[in-house]
Design a protein around this nucleic acid. Sequence first.
DNA 1: TAGATTGTTAATCGATTAACAATC
DNA 2: TAGATTGTTAATCGATTAACAATC
Lengths: 216, 216
Amino acid sequence: MPKNEKISNSVIRRLPRYYRFLGELSKEGINKISSRELAERMRLTASQIRQDLNCFGGFGQQGYGYNVSELRSEIGSILGVDKQHKAVLIGAGNLGHAIAVHINFEKYGCKLCGIFDSDERMVGQTIVGQKIIDVDRLSEFCRQHQPRIAILCIPKSAAPQLCEQLIGLGVKAFWNFSHYDINLEHNDIIVENVHLGDSLLALNYGVSNSANKTEE
Amino acid sequence: MPKNEKISNSVIRRLPRYYRFLGELSKEGINKISSRELAERMRLTASQIRQDLNCFGGFGQQGYGYNVSELRSEIGSILGVDKQHKAVLIGAGNLGHAIAVHINFEKYGCKLCGIFDSDERMVGQTIVGQKIIDVDRLSEFCRQHQPRIAILCIPKSAAPQLCEQLIGLGVKAFWNFSHYDINLEHNDIIVENVHLGDSLLALNYGVSNSANKTEE
DNA sequence: TAGATTGTTAATCGATTAACAATC
DNA sequence: TAGATTGTTAATCGATTAACAATC
């Protein structure tokens, strides 16, 4: 769908937020919105919104604005929310478990089709209606189901080897919650690192260096 | 500590990653590193690293490079890892629970001092050695302990009101995992939104639009 | 038609990269 | 001293904002 040039990462990162806000507007029963109004709500500039959207096409109408639900579904299809890419979750500990039950995968264009763990006490247990599978059976499973996305909720030490294994099995994208910083040679692999520690540290920087603190 | 000018957000976001990589180097027993070597490992440019670090001071030595553990501890203190800011966690459901046990708060300059939930079946249960407290007692607790950070693992609907309440109680920063997009009038409040859905959608965009897919 | 608002081009701003003098 | 590598200034690049003609 992209018009012609490569879409910048900054634009891509804003798309999910547009999608969310348009969903809310839709729920509020608002059918039409101008770039100016949307900018106000999202604390962006109208210019930026128009620039962003025009990377993908002219979704608006001069003199009128944008049709909320139409624009939302356009952005949705750009993001691929209706693709239902198959995903496996590796690591069903606290975080993995929470991700499995907390994230509505269908809503985000994914289908969670397998949950794995290496701890034999977890294997066989059921979460979100799925039996946890022994990670030893990962290869077998992937050959059969061909997942394209792997969600890593595993210790740092296990990550490098697992990444390589999964790439060998045809996985194209990683949603990485491990403390390992995926930085692969393979340049066709898509990585979304979620470093919660980094996020907390950035917040902590803000708190530690905020203006409302006395100089020390 | 900042030299004189305001530090850009892009720089701040890279600091935790520097901190992490330097920690790893330290563990590997590497004492000295040049900006060129570090850049290679982190997939950055040497220029950028030197620029970033020089926002805060000259931590290197010409002709030699940087002392790994020294630089790490400098960045650590810039990030405030030894500050131990008090934090409350609101919402001890799947995600809140996982955050509580998964994140080593001390390591990131925080101290988790209270966990709250509104579900009476959870109240009184213990996680990470702390009894879950009824959210009705949040005000009382905050007046006594004066936490500066609130971690929100609550439904979107509960977020706006809770934010206001917490700000009234002196909370200065939010680590926000709720689907509510904190976008406050209060401009001295620090917000770190962690929108896992947005993150997954960005990944999904990549998978849906990757080059190794056939045109459709 | 007049008014509004887009799509798009041009101007500005900020961040990244390159270059190099300073210096260990 | 010679070699290496920083700190810092200048050049480049890209992203954001402003402006405005096109058009509904």
